[in-house]
Amino acid sequence: MTDRKAEIAANLGKVEERIAAACAAAGRAREEVTLIVVTKTYPASDVRILAELGVRHVAENRDQDAAPKAAECSDLPLTWHFVGQLQTNKVRSVVSYAGLVQSVDRPKLVTALSAAAVKAERELGCLIQVALDAEEGGRGERGGVAPDGIEELAGLVANAPGLRLDGLMTVAPLAGPYAGRQQAAFQRLVEFSTLLRAAHPAANMVSAGMSADLEEAVAAGATHVRVGSAVLGVRPRLR
């Protein structure tokens, strides 16, 4: 085993232990939580190692990095999640490789994703990104739609050709009432998910939690956690 593969395997094992322990503490089955490894800034060779180690879900947040990497790894049994803020001029490229876009935050993006998915003859999973720091009239600092806009946006996705409404996503707010209160933030997202499922029962994904706060996300009821550095280590940011 190469040094890099051994390093990733060891880190993956530690993250797996954390998820399992968090599930046990929350009285949840381990199968209820899916690990998505965030591979941004890491090379395609790392993605290949992850696939060899059994990872099936990977995430990227910049199309210019993701598109060539996904092409290089197109032979692997992976689902690619796009988790970054998405400009409409990148939509056609993203739809060519992503199975899910977790950062749907405005009607114009829904329209663009729908047109691209239909043209590519693909069904694209979509999560509504919720800006919890915009709940009380604040401004979402990390992207997303204000909570009072979830219902309308979800309806647009659900009715758009080529798109599938899969659920909700958030990033723990750095400001506002939930700053430093990750578990409370994630619990609020789960409350919004419950409301959403009343109208859209199949939209049951709740994507929340990263390397530093995955335990809080699992405790709150997240179905998917997005972990990068805890699995792949800390790398210099790409320019």
Results as ranks from 00 to 15, higher is better:
E72W: 01
E32Q: 13
A59F: 07
E123H: 10
A172M: 08
A131C: 14
E52H: 01
A198C: 01
A222T: 05
G233S: 12
G138W: 02
L174E: 07
E135V: 12
R122C: 11
D213S: 11
F192N: 07
V55K: 06
L53H: 08
L156D: 02
T88M: 12
G137Y: 13
G144Y: 02
T170R: 09
V15W: 02
S114W: 03
V234S: 15
V110Q: 07
A6R: 10
E151F: 03
E7Y: 05
E123F: 06
P173A: 10
I150V: 15
D133A: 04
R56C: 13
A25F: 03
V15Q: 09
L168G: 12
L78V: 11
E135D: 15
A71Y: 04
Q129A: 15
R30H: 04
V94P: 02
L50G: 08
A66F: 08
A131I: 10
E31V: 06
K5D: 09
S211D: 04
E151Y: 01
G144M: 08
A20K: 09
R122W: 01
E123G: 12
P43E: 05
A184T: 01
A154C: 11
K69C: 14
L214W: 00
L189C: 08
L232C: 13
Q182D: 11
A217R: 01
E151C: 12
P107I: 13
L86S: 03
F192G: 03
D46W: 06
L78H: 02
F192A: 13
P236D: 12
V234G: 06
A66R: 04
A25L: 14
L168Y: 08
Q102F: 04
G209P: 01
S229I: 08
K90Y: 03
A175E: 10
E151I: 01
A9R: 12
L153A: 14
A202K: 02
E216A: 15
A120I: 06
A217W: 00
Q102K: 04
F82Y: 14
T41Q: 07
